[in-house]
Design a protein around this nucleic acid. Structure first.
Lengths: 350, 350
DNA sequence: TCTTGGTGAGAAAGCGCTTCCCGCGAAGCA
DNA sequence: TGCTTCGCGGGAAGCGCTTTCTCACCAAGA
C-alpha cells in the first residue's frame, strides 16, 4: 500500500488535451474516442486514446462537459430530514434509480424550514440539474409559498423537471400517495376488529400529508361507525418526539375512554408507543396505536405497529422515472397503500 | 397559483451575458457584482446589476463557475446503504456541515459492493469534488483493494481530499471511532452487572468495524472475567435481517447457557431482539441483547437496547471539517463512545 | 483522366463563467 | 501646474470540454 497516502506530489488532473497529445491525435478525436459520439473513429486511434487516458489516469471533467454540452447528469433531491427513515428510504430509491440512469444525485435538507427550502432550490438551480425532486410537504399557510412556486416554475421554464413527492401544492408532476384512501381503509379495518373510540396525533398546522391522512381516517370512521372527538385530535411536531409528546398529552388528559390512537406517521407512532409505556401502560392492551408509512423499524418495536404501508423506496424510484418522462410511471396513478394489521392493535371483543 | 405550472414557454436560463447587457455594463463588472470578488464595484453599477439579475431571474451556472475557477463547491459522499440509520445519520451530519460551508453534497450508495464502490469513486472523481468522504468499511480481503487505494490516491494527488469514516484501510485522513475501546468498556460493564456467558453476532468476513468491535468485546471479557466460546461467535450480514438470522441460529443451537448476545451493531441487535421474541422467548429475561451505535430506534424497541453510543451525526460533521483542514477536527483524536445500559440487559443477581 | 461522393481527422468556434491586464480619469504630491 | 499613483470599467484570454465545419484523401463511376 506504499503507493497510496497523503500528499505524494500535488498536480492537476490530466485534461483531455493531455490525453490527445499523449496519444498523438487531435483533441476532437480524443473526445470522440472517450465518449459515445455518433461519429466513427478509426479503431487504432481509439485504442491509442484509451491507452493514453488510462496511462494518465484521465477522468473527464464533468463540469466542463456540462458547460460544453449544455446539460448535466445531475439530479437534485430535497428532503426535510435525511436521518428520518421516511426520507432516507425515499432517498435510497431515488439514488438507486439515478444510478441506473447513470445520473448523480445531490442532496440537501430543508430541516422543514420553508425559507431554507426556497434558498436551497435557488442554489441547486445553479447546478442546472436535469431533475429536481422535492419530498416532504410544508405548511400550506406559508409566506414563501408563492416564491417557491415561482422559483420552481422558472426552473421548469429553463428546461428542468420538477417532481413533488406526496405534496399537491403546485401543479407540477407529482407522485401521489393514497394518503386519504389509505387512512380511510385503516379506519374501517380498525372498526372492523372492534375499536370504537379513537384519538389522533397529527402534524403541525396545515401540513398537507398529515391533514389528508387525518381526513381519510375521519371519513373511514364516519362510514364504519367509530368516533373521534375534536378534543382528541392533538397537534404535535411531525417527529418521533412530537409523537411522544402528543401521546403524553392525551394520557395526561385522562385518555377518556380512548381505545386507539392513530398517529399520522410511523415515526410519531413509535414515539407514541414509548410514551404509553413510559406512562406505565401497556400499548396494545391499555391503548392501541396505529401509524402510517410502514418504515422498517415498526416491525421491530413491541408491540409491532399496525400501519399503512407506503412503498417508500418505490416512491423515490417513481419520482425519478416520472421526471425522466417515463410514460408508465405517470400512468400508474397514485401509489398504492396497504393496511398492515399488527400486534399494536389486537382484535377487540366488543 | 396561476403563474406556476408545467410548460409555460420553454427558454434557456439567463446567462451572465444577458444580465450584463440588461444592466448596461460589461461582463466583468456583472461578474464582480454578483459574487464576492475582491475588487470594488461602483455601488450604482452593482445595484443595476443586481436589479437586472433579479429581473431576469438569473442563477449562476455552477458548472461554468467551476470550470472557470478551477474548483468546485461539491462534496462527494459514499455510503453503503442510504436507508440504514447508521449511514443516514452520518449523511445528515455531512449535509448539515456542508450546508454551513455552502457546499453541495452529492451522494451515492455502494450497496456494500467493492466493485461498485470503485466505479463510483471513478465517476464521482469527474465532478472534481473538493472532498470525498467514504463511510462503511469493506472486507479487508478484497481484490479491488489496491485499485481503490490507487484511485483515491490519484484523486488526492490532483488536489482532492479523502476522508474515511471508521475504516482504517488506507492512510488517508480518517475519523476514527473508538470501536475497540467502546466494546471493551461495554463488556466490562456487562460483566459488572452480573453477566458471565456471552455470544456474539458479527458482520461478514473481515469487515473491519465489526472485527474491531468483537476484538474489543473479547478483550473486555477477558479482563473482567466473562466467557465467549468460539462457537458462540456467529457471522451474519451486517443488516437487520442478518442480526435476526444470527440470533435464530444461536437459539436453534440451544442457546447453551448463553446469557447475553452482543451484536456488532444496533441494526443487527434490533433484528436479534425480534428473533428472540419470535422464538417465544423474552428478550432481557431469557436472553439479554446489546448492540453498538445507539441509532435512534433503539430507544423505542422493547426492551430498550443497551448499546454503545456513537455520535453518528457528529461523525459526519467531523469528517467534513477534517477534510476542509479544520485543525481542531484532526486534533480531537478518536470519536468518543459511551456505554448506555438499558432494559435489554437488566442487572443480573449472580 | 477527370469528376463525384463518401469518409473521417483536425482546426476552431463556442459553452458560461472568471480574471488578468490595459487604459482612463481622479486624486495625491511637490 | 506637472507628474505619479491609485481606483475601477471593460476587453479579451482562457478554463476543459463538445461539435460544427473544413478539407485531405481515396474509391468508384464516366
Amino acid at each position: 500500500m506504499t503507493e497510496t497516502g497523503i500528499g505524494t506530489g500535488r498536480s492537476t488532473p490530466a485534461t483531455l488535451h493531455d490525453v490527445a497529445r499523449e496519444a498523438g491525435v487531435s483533441l476532437a478525436t480524443a473526445s470522440r474516442s472517450l465518449n459515445g459520439s455518433t461519429r466513427k473513429v478509426n479503431d487504432e486511434y481509439r485504442q491509442r486514446v484509451l491507452a493514453a487516458a488510462a496511462r494518465l489516469d484521465y477522468s473527464p471533467n464533468l463540469s466542463a462537459q456540462a458547460v460544453a454540452r449544455g446539460t448535466t447528469t445531475t439530479v437534485a433531491l430535497l428532503v426535510a430530514d435525511i436521518a428520518d427513515p421516511y426520507f432516507s428510504s425515499i432517498a435510497a430509491g431515488v439514488v438507486a434509480e439515478a444510478d441506473q440512469e447513470r445520473l448523480i444525485v445531490t442532496m440537501a435538507a430543508t430541516e422543514r424550514d420553508p425559507e431554507r427550502e426556497l434558498e436551497l432550490v435557488r442554489t441547486l438551480r445553479g447546478q442546472r440539474p436535469r431533475v429536481m425532486i422535492l419530498a416532504g410537504s410544508r405548511p400550506t399557510s406559508d409566506p414563501t409559498e408563492g416564491a417557491l412556486g415561482e422559483e420552481l416554475a422558472a426552473y421548469e421554464r429553463s428546461g428542468g423537471r420538477v417532481v413533488l413527492i406526496s405534496r399537491n401544492e403546485f401543479d407540477f408532476r407529482t407522485v401521489i400517495v393514497e394518503n386519504t384512501a389509505g387512512a380511510d381503509a385503516l379506519a374501517r379495518e380498525l372498526v372492523g376488529i372492534g375499536y370504537r373510540r379513537f384519538a389522533v396525533i397529527t402534524g403541525g398546522e396545515g401540513l398537507r400529508t398529515a391533514a389528508d391522512r387525518v381526513d381519510g381516517f375521519r371519513a373511514g370512521l364516519a362510514a364504519a361507525g367509530g368516533t373521534l372527538d375534536d378534543e382528541h385530535v392533538v397537534r404535535a411536531a411531525f417527529t418521533r418526539d412530537g409523537g411522544y409528546d402528543g401521546m403524553r398529552q392525551l394520557i395526561e388528559s385522562g385518555l377518556d375512554g380512548i381505545e386507539l390512537v392513530f398517529a399520522a406517521n410511523d415515526v410519531m407512532a413509535v414515539g407514541a408507543l414509548s410514551a404509553v409505556r413510559d406512562a406505565g401502560l401497556v400499548p396494545g392492551t391499555d391503548v392501541a396505536v396505529a401509524g402510517f408509512d410502514d418504515i422498517p423499524t415498526v416491525r421491530d418495536v413491541t408491540p409491532a405497529l399496525t400501519t399503512v404501508r407506503v412503498p417508500l423506496e418505490e416512491l423515490g424510484r417513481r419520482a425519478l422515472r416520472l421526471a425522466l418522462g417515463d410514460e408508465s410511471a405517470s400512468s400508474e396513478g397514485a401509489v398504492r397503500t396497504e393496511v398492515v394489521l399488527r400486534a399494536s392493535t389486537p382484535a377487540r371483543i366488543a
